[in-house]
Design a binder for these strands. Structure first.
Length: 563
RNA sequence: UGGGGCGUCGGCAAGUGGUAAGCCACCGGGUUUUGGUUCCGGUAUUCCUAGGUUCGAAUCCUAGCGCCUCAGCCA
């Protein structure tokens, strides 16, 4: 973890309290958590919250956190997903050591537990069809009816279950169900299915099984087998907790974990459901799961997010039971905060306008020294070539500036960062009236950016025209235009897609950037934070992604004044 | 209309009987070779509502109201 991480924001939350209490009372000598994703998709920022919570609690209390892939449904899972999950967790900065597990590691044990349940007359093989089971289940307000197979002899169920395993029956022919209470007001307790027949190739166990355990049965037992003390999951599993406890109480298991539920993360201006994320990818609305606009960990990584920013964010949003939607500005703040501290400052001009310094020698080139970080000398410095023709940002010049505009305009003097003071003498336009060039003069006494006490109201970034390198710059913005893209029941969330979420431009950058390595992050001074694209960056054709812009007070002032 | 859960500032979120932390956002102001950073200051007489208990309640009691969740051989 980087030394930039701030721990001063650590706040109490109910899970931390429970853990402290359990340690204080001696209920547990040490704690064990786990992050249990199903390898059927890519991880997103919601998972990041869970990862940070589980690994974070383990680290904070010197416990352990297992990475467990919950692979009980072979029709949806594959190794590509397990690899991406491992990579994402590692990138976030967490280490599971030798504690990588799979629910499928326990298939044999799970099978034996199921047999045990049948022997205890706490489970039975049911031959009702899926539709019949549904019909027998009852509704929210009416109790269910018992299956006609419910009271068949234990031996018969046991025999059938063994033959299920042996592959004697076709898929869907029968299931094994826990025998609990068909009239329970909690529907998860109405004889839930715990094993089904599913002839599918499993990514790890291959074809050795044709029956697979259900989540409710497998999860609690996996936790118990691993000695998990605190099994943290999201709110929608609250209804399943009595069932979780039922299984571990019936069976002779090595430990009794406690399930604790917390609210999943929702973020403004984004969608989080796996289904909707898949839609974006499949409909080609984004370039893939790692599109820099996606809230996936892979996407955020490619966008240039830092693991520390995500960790800090997770800590700050807290953990509670209340459903809530976090303002994405909070995430952006955590991002800028980390980037500000860790990133080198360089210069690049996104939308150039040429400046010719008429009193600067025709062929002269000077090497000017410029630090990489004004507040952190340890980052060192580089030299910048300066010459007669430069580029500055189009936004930094106005022919008829409003009162509060401090930048360059006719007759006004400004500073070129780490270079000289220049004064605009003349504006050159084309036939159409577009400004194509600015004729300026410079003050040779202001080298480095200081002149005898003379103050100037603005400092502009610039690049030397003949030394600048050209690069593709991908300007990313929020994917949606509304804080709650899922909030309108009438309209599909894709109608709120931001048409300007990506703008690709060609920019002029200072030459040092040609040697940037993929995933190197920098700040283009006065503009924002950028990252050399993980996939497409090469020194021949540099590609930078905008991670996030700097806070732009001027933009707010000017739009407020209608300037 | 059964069960479970949740309601504290614009958004997160502490607080669990002693008189409303913090963060984001927002608004002022200082410093500044990034209109960045940073630093100072401001921002809930009030905790879903209504009653009640108490010297004292966001915290306890009662009754309402609102929102989330559960009827996969998904997780």
């Amino acid at each position: 973890m980087s030394h930039h991480e701030s721990h001063d924001t650590e706040v109490s939350h109910f899970i931390r309290d429970i853990i402290k209490e359990d340690l204080a009372t001696g209920k547990h000598k040490s704690i064990a958590t786990r992050f249990p994703p199903e390898p059927n998709g890519y991880l997103h920022i919601g998972h990041a919250k869970s990862i940070c919570l589980n690994f974070g609690m383990a680290k904070e209390f010197s416990g352990t956190c297992n990475l467990r892939l919950d692979d009980t449904n072979p029709t949806k899972e594959n190794t590509e997903y397990v690899e991406s999950i491992k990579g994402d967790v590692r990138w976030l900065g967490f280490d599971w050591g030798d504690r990588l597990f799979f629910a499928s590691d326990y298939f044999e044990k799970l099978y034996n537990y199921a047999e045990e349940l049948i022997r205890m007359d706490k489970a039975y093989v049911c031959e009702l069809s899926a539709e019949e089971i549904r019909a027998f289940r009852g509704t929210l307000t009416e109790p269910g009816k018992e299956s006609p197979y419910r009271n068949r002899p234990t031996e018969e169920s046991l025999d059938l279950f063994r033959r299920m395993r042996a592959g004697e029956f076709e898929d869907g022919k029968m299931v094994v169900r826990a025998k609990i209470d068909m009239s329970s007001p909690n529907i998860t307790l109405r004889d839930p299915t715990i094993y089904r027949i599913r002839r599918a190739h499993h990514h790890r166990t291959g074809d050795t099984w044709c029956i697979y355990p259900m989540y409710d049965f497998a999860h609690c037992l996996s936790d118990a087998l691993e000695g998990i003390t605190h099994s943290l999951c999201t709110l929608e599993f609250e209804n399943n907790r009595p069932l979780y406890e039922w299984f571990i109480n019936q069976l002779d298991v090595p430990s009794h974990p406690r399930q604790i539920e917390f609210a999943r993360l929702e973020l403004t201006y984004t969608v989080m459901s796996k289904r909707k994320l898949l839609r974006l990818v499949e409909d080609g609305l984004v370039s893939g799961w790692d599109d820099p606009r996606m809230p996936t960990i892979a996407g955020m990584r490619r966008r240039g997010f830092t693991p520390a920013a995500l960790r800090n964010f997770s800590e700050r949003i807290g953990v509670a039971k209340r459903n809530s939607t976090v303002d994405v500005a909070m995430l952006e703040h955590a991002l800028r905060e980390d980037l500000n501290a860790t990133t080198r400052r360089v210069m690049g001009v996104l939308d150039p306008i040429k400046v010719v310094i008429e009193n600067y020698p025709e062929d002269a080139v000077e090497e000017l020294d410029a630090p990489f970080h004004p507040e952190d000398e340890s980052m060192g410095s580089r030299t910048l070539p300066f010459s007669r023709e430069l580029y500055i940002e189009r936004d930094d010049f106005m022919e008829n500036p409003p009162k509060k505009f401090f930048r360059l305009s006719p007759g006004r003097e400004v500073r070129l960062r780490y270079a000289y003071y220049i004064t605009c003498k003349e504006v050159v336009k084309d036939e159409a009236g577009n400004i194509v060039e600015l004729i300026c003069t410079y003050d040779p006494e202001s080298r480095g950016g200081t002149a005898d006490g003379r103050k100037v109201k603005a400092t502009l970034h610039w690049v030397s025209a003949k030394h600048a390198i050209r690069a593709e710059v991908r300007l990313y913005d929020r994917l949606f235009t509304t804080p709650a893209p899922e909030g309108d029941k009438e309209k599909d969330f894709t109608t709120f897609l931001n048409p300007d979420s990506l703008n690709v431009i060609e920019a002029y950058l200072e030459p040092s950037l040609a040697s940037a390595a993929p995933e190197d992050r920098v700040q283009f001074e006065r503009i924002g934070y950028f990252v050399a694209d993980k996939i497409d960056m090469t020194s021949e054709k540099p590609v930078f992604n905008r991670i996030i812009g700097l806070r732009d007070t001027w933009a707010r002032i000017s739009s407020k004044e209608g300037a």
